[in-house]
Design a protein around this nucleic acid. Structure first.
Length: 492
RNA sequence: CGGGGUGUAGCGCAGUUGGUAGCGCAUCUGGUUUGGGACCAGAGGGUCGCAUGUUCGAGUCAUGUCACCCCGACCA
């Protein structure tokens, strides 16, 4: 039977890890802080990639690829940027191994030291801007709209599967524009692409907003974010889009000749989402039976489990499944017939539920005689007996309902856990319960830091699309005047 | 890097006062089963993280060391 997850359970961390293992998404690797993404988990990531990639291209973005290694000197050019990443970089210092002269095994050849160390990219702004310098001469070369799908490495002190791994997969878009307005608009456009993807594909409600100066990306003038709420009430930053101003252009001397014959620095953006989205997906929707996948991201949308006693029954059921499968595939639905002969139906039900397959159909001799089929949906765990006639249309419709229901459920949960708060003492206890608190903030970094030090809560964002936040008030901590409410939460 | 914890079969664990290395799951064989994680019978599988010490004898005691996990600080 359905077991609801207990929000904000003590063992939430364990619950999350269990889902990752039970759904066969990933496993811990022998390499520190890195994980192995297994085929099923990777298939979900591939679906995310293809949908995002299409959305990017619709905005005029093209894919490209830049080097994994970045010469150390590139990092010294943008001081603020390097300050944000220096503490977590993997550094290549040598290029050769040799047999250990004193014993077995292999050691680094001390003769093979690199003249200049190479940094394994933690993000590619520096290498890309060193390349863009050569691409950009004239206003006619702009805008440049490139994205790359790649891996990056950040030597985090503490890691968690998908949410924070030493190596992770992501996309990073880097654009160059002639004007500040155009760049700012691009940054806003891309954060809306992410928000649409989160809501419509991941079935995950998000709040779009600006980061406070403290929480901004290193080197950015403005950072836009999508903030999601996990089932334990904690916030998760699911994607960011940065307006970089002319900082990188100036550091890497990227200038263009404008229409008036003058020389100007270009304006830049960068934006990215990572395999952290997988973590968001897991924590936003899963229950105690395992993963719950929105149909739009499910590698298998419909699984078919045959029930039989004899070979004749088996053949009859599988033949029927083939027919239903063809009809569904014609509608663009991905199906899987679980014809494994060594496992019992009950085992298969549990296994596919753990993997989050949105719809399961079961068919046995009893159904064949009655002309019916059992259809079960993963989100509610409800089962229905429907006519075999037109079952493909029924399922196509059901998939849409499941997608919508998963979103509605997540939205209802989030909205139930967003509340206004105007009293500091109340804030201190309320924030520990999880959820988002809408509070007045005086706009100073000092207040933000003081609140963080006392409660661990951070300003997740200053919402751009929520009118409730635009009202006069007094800062929750300092009591100074405030122009609007911001979102406070404890975050992953 | 601070605070806590764990290392014993593929996974999860027990192992008492130091005295033949155990259990559950998984795997393999055979049979019966199959509409919600099957059952019976049998079998295989271990350098007890590593090193040193104490001892007639160490999974167990001591010292050291390594690895991993959890909680912080840092972060997508």
């Amino acid at each position: 039977m359905a077991k609801e997850i207990t929000p904000r359970a003590e063992n939430y961390s364990q619950w999350y890890n269990d889902i990752v293992v039970k759904a066969d998404l990933a496993e811990q690797s022998a390499v520190r802080g890195c994980m192995v993404i297994k085929p099923y988990g990777y298939a979900i990531w591939e679906k995310m990639q293809s949908i995002l990639d299409k959305a990017f291209k619709e905005t005029g973005v093209q894919n490209a690829y830049f080097p994994l290694f970045i010469p150390k000197s590139f990092f010294s050019r943008e001081a603020e940027h390097v300050a944000g990443f220096a503490k977590e970089c993997a550094v290549v210092t040598h290029h050769r191994l040799m047999n250990d002269p004193y014993g077995k095994g292999v050691v680094v050849d001390p003769e093979a030291r690199l003249e200049e160390e190479l940094i394994v990219r933690p993000t590619s702004e520096t290498i890309i801007w060193s390349v863009y310098k050569n691409w950009i001469k004239s206003w006619r070369d702009l805008p440049i709209l490139c994205n790359q799908w790649c891996n990056v490495v950040r030597w985090e002190m503490r890691t968690r599967p998908f949410l924070r791994t030493a190596e992770f997969l992501w996309q990073e878009g880097h654009t160059a524009h002639a004007t500040a307005e155009e760049a700012q608009a691009k940054a806003e456009q891309m954060v809306q692409v992410y928000a649409k993807f989160a809501r419509e594909t991941m079935a995950m409600p998000v709040i779009v907003g600006h980061k406070s100066p403290n929480e901004r990306f290193a080197g950015a003038l403005d950072t836009l974010t999508i903030e999601a709420m996990m089932q334990d009430g904690k916030a998760l930053q699911a994607g960011t889009s940065h307006f970089l101003g002319q900082n990188f252009a100036k550091s890497f001397e990227v200038q263009f000749a404008d229409k008036e014959g003058g020389l100007q620095y270009v304006w830049a953006t960068s934006w990215g989402v990572s395999t952290r989205l997988m973590g968001a997906l897991i924590m936003a929707h899963s229950d105690d039976n395992g993963l719950v996948l929105p149909p739009a991201l499910a590698p298998i949308q419909v699984v078919m489990v045959p029930i039989y006693k004899t070979d004749e029954e088996r053949d009859a059921v599988l033949a029927k499944f083939e027919a239903i499968g063809k009809a569904l595939e014609a509608k663009g639905v991905s199906v899987k017939i679980d014809s494994r002969d060594t496992l019992r139906p009950g085992f298969k039900f549990a296994e596919w539920e753990a993997k989050g397959v949105p719809v399961r159909i079961a068919l046995g001799a009893r159904d064949l005689a009655a002309g019916t089929v059992e259809v079960a949906r993963r989100d509610t765990l409800e089962k229905a007996t429907v006519s075999l006639e037109g079952v493909d249309a029924y399922i196509e419709d059901l998939l849409g309902k499941v997608q919508q229901n998963i979103y509605d459920k997540a939205l209802a949960f989030r909205d139930a856990n967003i509340r206004k708060c105007d009293d500091w003492e109340e804030f201190k206890t309320e924030i520990q319960k999880g959820g988002f608190l809408l509070c007045h903030w005086d706009g100073t970094a000092e207040t933000e830091q003081a609140i963080k030090d006392e409660t661990k809560a951070t300003i997740r964002c200053i919402p751009v699309d929520s009118c409730v936040c635009e009202e006069e008030g007094k800062d929750i901590y300092s009591g100074k005047p405030s122009k609007g409410r911001v979102v406070f939460a404890i975050a992953y």
